[in-house]
């Protein structure tokens, strides 16, 4: 996993709540057996005029001009700003892979759906929770500022605006540790293989039917 320490990037405002994972990456692309290549079809239904299919050349498809990702001023954006309950619906990690493959490193929203939130951390995409008021303010500032960039500092747990305002955010200590160091959490868990085996031995006594098949 790519490390996340400090990231400064252009912010893309997606002014919607309840953005579901079906919208982030439509189902026809889930047939892939790979983790990469989902960027061009991120927000596919909103981004293009006509529905796409896997395997086509997405660079030649007609764009939906008024969708935020297609606006010239937001090209190269790496921080997504959205409203509450981002990433709800299906558990598909493809949604996170599409966001990172496109180039996003962080998302800012007032709240996230649980599974999406977890999936993000596993892929070096930092989901930041800021209050509705602050998110409102950020949307307004982006409106009125050209090339609006934010600086995210995971170590300090802060988001800094161009005018120097600093917003702190909360993050789970374990997740932060893994992300700062780009750690593979399977490797970390396997360090406790003995504890897992001991647990299994104990459970086999208590509830042997769980190990019958």
């Amino acid at each position: 996993m790519e490390k996340f320490t400090v990231h400064k990037g252009l912010v893309v405002p997606l002014d919607r709540s309840n953005v579901d994972t079906d919208a982030i990456i439509p189902k026809q692309y889930l047939k892939s057996v790979k983790k990469s290549g989902f960027g061009p079809t991120l927000f596919d239904d909103w981004r293009y005029k006509i529905a796409g299919e896997p395997g086509m050349d997405h660079s030649t498809r007609e764009l939906q001009d008024d969708f935020v990702l297609n606006k010239p001023q937001y090209q190269g954006g790496s921080i997504l700003l959205a409203r509450e309950n981002f990433g709800c619906g299906s558990s598909r990690e493809h949604a996170v892979w599409a966001l990172t493959d496109y180039g996003f490193r962080a998302i800012i929203a007032p709240s996230y759906a649980d599974i999406f939130f977890n999936n993000s951390f596993k892929n070096g995409l930092l989901p930041i929770i800021l209050s509705e008021q602050i998110v409102d303010k950020l949307f307004a500032e982006i409106e009125s500022t050209e090339a609006y960039e934010l600086t995210v500092d995971l170590e300090k747990q802060t988001v800094q605006t161009p005018s120097g305002e600093i917003y702190p955010f909360e993050v789970d200590a374990f997740k932060k540790h893994c992300m700062l160091n780009g750690l593979d959490d399977i490797g970390l868990t396997l360090q406790h293989a003995d504890a897992i085996k001991a647990y299994e031995e104990k459970r086999k006594q208590e509830a042997p039917w769980l190990f019958a098949s």
Partner: peptide, 16 residues
């Protein structure tokens, strides 16, 4: 669970 967690459970029988 997401796919990273699927892999995690496959390899460790556990979930964080």
């Amino acid at each position: 669970i997401g796919t990273s967690e699927v892999e995690h459970v496959m390899a460790t029988q556990c979930l964080i």
